[in-house]
Structures are given as C-alpha cells and as structure tokens.
C-alpha cells in the first residue's frame, strides 16, 4: 500500500485512515503484560541517523522491537560516514546487507527520496531537512482524532517558524488532507515562500485566531533564527506569538494544545501553558510509538513484505495477534 513513507503529501485520506486505525489497534499492545507481538520477527529495521535525534530514534526503536523486528542503529557519527564514506556508498552497503526497512533522518531535504533509488528496502522518512517528518504528522493526527474524535471540520492553527519546519509541512498537509481548516500564524519572515499556495489561511495576529481554534499547534522556534534577522528577539517573539496561560484562556472550550518537542519553554510556550490540562504534548510522545508501529507493520507486515491488507480494524487485530 505504501512503497515508502517519504512525505505526507503522498498519502491519501484512505491511507492515513488505515495507518491511524491500525495504530489504534497496536496501541493496546503497550498495555499488555508482555508488550510485544511476533509480527515482524525475522525482519531487520535499520535506524540510519545522519542527524542526532534521540527522541525519534528511540521511538522508532521501541516501535520496531514491540513488533519483534531486529533493530540496527546506524549513526552517522562514529560510523564510516564520518570517515568520509558518502551517502550513496552507505546506502549501497545497507543494500548489500539486505535490511528490510531503513528509517532515515537527515539534515538534507530529499535525502530519503534519494535513498529509494539505491536500495530495495522500504524507506521511512524520520525527518529530512526542512522538508517532511511524516510520522510526526501522523502521530499528531492520531492524537487529535483520539482526543477530539475526528479531524474533518476542525479548525487548526499552526504557529511559529513554518519556514524552517519539516514538522509543519507534514502536519499542515495531513490536516488538510483529512479535511481540517488550517491557519498558519507567525511573523511574515517565518512563513514559507508562496505560502498562499498551501491551501491554508494566514494570519499574523494570534490573539484574533485563538477564539476560532480547536487545535493549537506550536512549533519550536530556533534561537539561531534571531541572529539571521527573522525576528528581533525571543522576548518580542514570546510577546507577540508565544502562548501563555492568558492566551490559552482565549481558546474555545475543548481545544487542545500541541507541540512536536523539544520545547523552548519561555519562547513559544510558557511552562504553565505547556503543562496545562489541555496540553497533548506528552500524549503525542506516547502515541508516536503506536503510529510508528503501524507504519512499520503496514509496510513490512504482509506475506511478501508488501503492505498487508488493512481493510478493517478487526482484520488488523487478528493479524497482529496471529
């Protein structure tokens, strides 16, 4: 069903729904006394990380292990890459070793897509440059659906440095595909070029947007962007686009707050806002495992290593327990 998981843009409503439905079934495994099923026994998943990301790597590692896959962690630091082996040679090496799936994180946009040209393994994008982070977007959709019951028709506001954010590209596209309305909020300097073509509304006035927001999605603001004159100071950013308890109070009843982590407390979100009852931030992390299990399962779980059928929740459940 999904040859590679590279970009949220490649996924249809049906595909996203199948991933979320399967994740729902798989999430239950974590609650068992032995949180493990044999589904991917004998399969090898390689976490190929050219950029540090302990959170994402661990989440993928736990997901693969709960499905009984063998996991190799290949970090660009301390591997042959740092001794000067190129990206393509690293890919060919993994190809020669015959891994079944490669979970790749890379600072260069497009690297996972390039990888698919050189390997037969399924490629899962675990974040590439400013481009995409599809499993993050999927876990966010999963969390929204779990908490609010649906995605279609919701009003989401994505706030902050959309320009440099792979998370934003995945989340916004996922929300739009699933029928939510999206408003991008932030200083004009942090909006991506031609944001008018994204199919969202755009606002620079967070306070005006908050009362019409069901999902408030805050992005990490990188301090170094200040030096590049995208905005004058983190103090000014926090004052105009940061979320504190007062701003949270402007949200309608039942609205949720999300953040992909790691947070800059005091910049895009204050500590008390991050820890407020309607903050989904910890739940997002928890759900990341089930969603990544779902992606690995759907991409590797079939008889021939191709996608298994994901017709309904019942059949998935049977497969997982088989």
């Amino acid at each position: 069903m999904i040859p590679h998981l590279l970009s949220m843009q490649d996924l249809s409503v049906d595909q996203i729904t199948a991933i979320l439905d399967t994740a729902e079934t798989l999430k239950e495994i974590a609650l068992r006394p032995i949180a493990k099923v044999p589904t991917l026994r004998g399969r090898t998943v390689c976490n190929l990380f050219f950029e540090d990301s302990t959170r994402t790597r661990i989440s993928f590692e736990i997901a693969a292990k709960r499905l009984s896959a063998d996991v190799i962690n290949f970090s660009a630091k301390g591997s042959s890459v740092s001794k000067g082996e190129g990206f393509k040679d690293t890919a060919l090496t993994l190809q020669a070793m015959g891994v079944d799936a490669i979970v790749v994180r890379h600072a260069a946009s497009g690297a996972p897509q390039q990888l698919t040209r050189w390997v037969d393994a399924k490629v899962l994008n675990a974040g590439d440059g400013w481009h995409q982070h599809p499993t993050q977007g999927l876990l966010d959709l999963f969390t929204i659906r779990e908490r609010l019951g649906h995605i279609e028709g919701l009003r989401a506001a994505v706030v902050g440095d959309v320009f440099h954010s792979r998370v934003a590209r995945s989340v916004v596209q996922g929300l739009l595909t699933m029928g939510a309305e999206v408003t991008i909020v932030g200083p004009p300097t942090l909006l991506p070029p031609r944001v008018d073509t994204w199919g969202t509304a755009v606002s620079h006035d967070l306070d005006a947007v908050l009362p019409k927001t069901d999902v408030l999605y805050l992005l990490r603001v990188q301090q170094e962007r200040m030096g590049e004159q995208f905005f004058p100071s983190s103090r000014e950013y926090a004052r105009i686009w940061g979320v504190d308890r007062d701003r949270l109070a402007r949200l309608p009843e039942g609205a949720v707050v999300m953040h992909p982590g790691p947070m800059n407390r005091g910049v895009e979100v204050t500590a008390d806002a991050a820890d407020a009852p309607n903050s989904m931030i910890q739940l997002q992390v928890t759900n990341g495992i089930a969603v990544r299990m779902s992606c690995l399962y759907l991409m590797l779980g079939g008889e021939d290593g191709r996608a298994a059928d994901v017709g309904g929740r019942g059949s998935n459940s049977e497969r997982v327990e088989a």
Partner: peptide, 13 residues
C-alpha cells in the same frame, strides 16, 4: 529557485 516548489521541498530559496 525560491518559490512555491522550494517551499514545498524544504530547500532554501
């Protein structure tokens, strides 16, 4: 080139 595609592809324009 900076534009709609650089925005989508996450490449500096």
């Amino acid at each position: 080139n900076e534009g709609e595609l650089s925005s989508l592809l996450g490449l500096a324009g």
